[in-house]
Design a protein around this nucleic acid. Sequence first.
DNA 1: ATGAAAGCGCTAACAG
DNA 2: CTGTTAGCGCTTTCAT
Lengths: 337, 337
Amino acid sequence: MRVTIKDVAREAGVSVSTVSYALNKKGEPIKDSHKRVIDAAKRLGYVPDATARSLVNSRTNSIGVVIRKQKHKDEYNPYEVELIAAFSSELAKCKNWMNLYLDNGDNNSLLEQLVIDAKVDGMIWAGEKIPNQIQNILKVRSVPYVIVLAPEANPEVSTVQINGEHGVVEAIRYLVSLGHRKILNIAGFPNMATKRRCTYINTLENMGICSHKEIFCYYNENLAYEEVKKLLIQNDNRPTAIFAENDNMALSAMRAAKDLGFKVPEDISIVGFDDIYATQISDPPLTTIRQDLNEVARLACEYLIKCRDSKISLPLIHEKVPTKLIIRGSTGKVPAF
Amino acid sequence: MRVTIKDVAREAGVSVSTVSYALNKKGEPIKDSHKRVIDAAKRLGYVPDATARSLVNSRTNSIGVVIRKQKHKDEYNPYEVELIAAFSSELAKCKNWMNLYLDNGDNNSLLEQLVIDAKVDGMIWAGEKIPNQIQNILKVRSVPYVIVLAPEANPEVSTVQINGEHGVVEAIRYLVSLGHRKILNIAGFPNMATKRRCTYINTLENMGICSHKEIFCYYNENLAYEEVKKLLIQNDNRPTAIFAENDNMALSAMRAAKDLGFKVPEDISIVGFDDIYATQISDPPLTTIRQDLNEVARLACEYLIKCRDSKISLPLIHEKVPTKLIIRGSTGKVPAF
DNA sequence: ATGAAAGCGCTAACAG
DNA sequence: CTGTTAGCGCTTTCAT
């Protein structure tokens, strides 16, 4: 039989309210009776029932997190752990549990059941579009929620997004600050990454640099290796820096450069994008740009906690988290001619 | 104000118990009153309160999962997501939430608070040793728990483990079945991996094969590349197959072989261990061996759910999950001489 | 089948 | 400071 607050009260010879009072006040147990309560609780091995507490307080100290990833797309996402870890640690900081569900979008009725059954004070939705039905449930229950890392914006709900273009600007600014003027961009797709590409071109032009060059490598490492090699073999107008749209292509570029006898960063600087683990152990470690997922998690959690703690309903938030430059060994001053 | 079962009762002109009855019976709403209840519930946007339900049913439909990873050790673990995903999907199958906490072992009192505050029907502990204090809380609350992937065995609590040696045996058996007799083992450390090494040697000897050879590459890719290259250059007694203790070394071996003009798998077969993502996109894709984390999750969850559903307390379990051979393109029949 | 009522374990008025 | 008591929202006897 489980030990309840009643048992403790009987054991300590006081009423239940005294027990509740004594156990919840963290002040010194000055009162003799309080000491008795604490003793009794320890003796009986009393552990309060979190569910009963939640019912009366109408707060659960947990936040729901559902991460929806499209099936087969982005099968291998090095960020998922990072994102999950960020939420977990952010929530634990204020003693909250994370109720996590990894959703692949193929069973909305299961998802709905789960959301109905969720004992949470707030909800975070990461990734693909959140179904309206789910939003309705959240609304009638007045569970505050925020959408995170969504592919498209939505002004009617709270969001925390990554400012994608910011990273491109950051990389270029950094390279230019090192004196580089001939910067090669290894892009992904010619059609898809329009925004990034525009940012790349605009940034360079805004800085008065026109000798930019782009190649498209479709996020394919081998292709990047070959293309960069081809490009570096030509002796005229060789770039002094390379900025790739992901780390894998950047690492291929580095390998290509090294295989041709170039030294990194003495002869050529290289910047990646993503900050995958391999960048830390490459030789030299790759300078790269990353999404600050910890910041994303922090903002989302902070908002939800605030919503819970304030009685009034808070205004929506629309945060844009800038990317972060991680300077390592693959970048240096432009070589003197 | 939130809509409760009372509101629905009033709206439908019945008592609360009728509402509860009508809403929980999934049978046909033959009775007119039931139909009225369902209508009223929909009209009012009624969503039952999961906490209140939990309190009276004393079941929460959620399972706690805490994954403890030692700080700085194994900083990059490609399995973490996989493990988390396995738990999430396994639990969702039976409509349970996962309450997840990623613990780095540096704040046991926070952990304790969380466990006290956990509204769960069972608990899974993955990784490093579970503190006694935590076990005590679980016990007095009679929350069933199982330890998963622990470094050491523990006969007094339920466990689900990976059978490590099994993978070694599996790899060798497979290579031998393809006709290979000269199998090189790329081991990690000479001292640490005693168990695996013994298994390797014993397995070969048990099969009557004595021409085994081992090199130690300390899980270092570059070293593996150089060592394998050195070894393959010698023309006499060259191995026809290589078995590496992790995928990274296996991939290095493959690169070394290819760089020397060998064809994989025509001239030489290669098997890895771990099934990291890179094995799928290498050329050829790497045959490898992996832990079956889905099975681990399945067994642990199944047990806990069973514990909850059966009133009597179940006997402990001690499962050993065999590894799984993933046959891809890097292995083939031994070349004819 | 339905309603009245008890109670899950806890907190927080309220009165003393 | 302490005890009494009324709920939190729901399920579930137990009569009717």
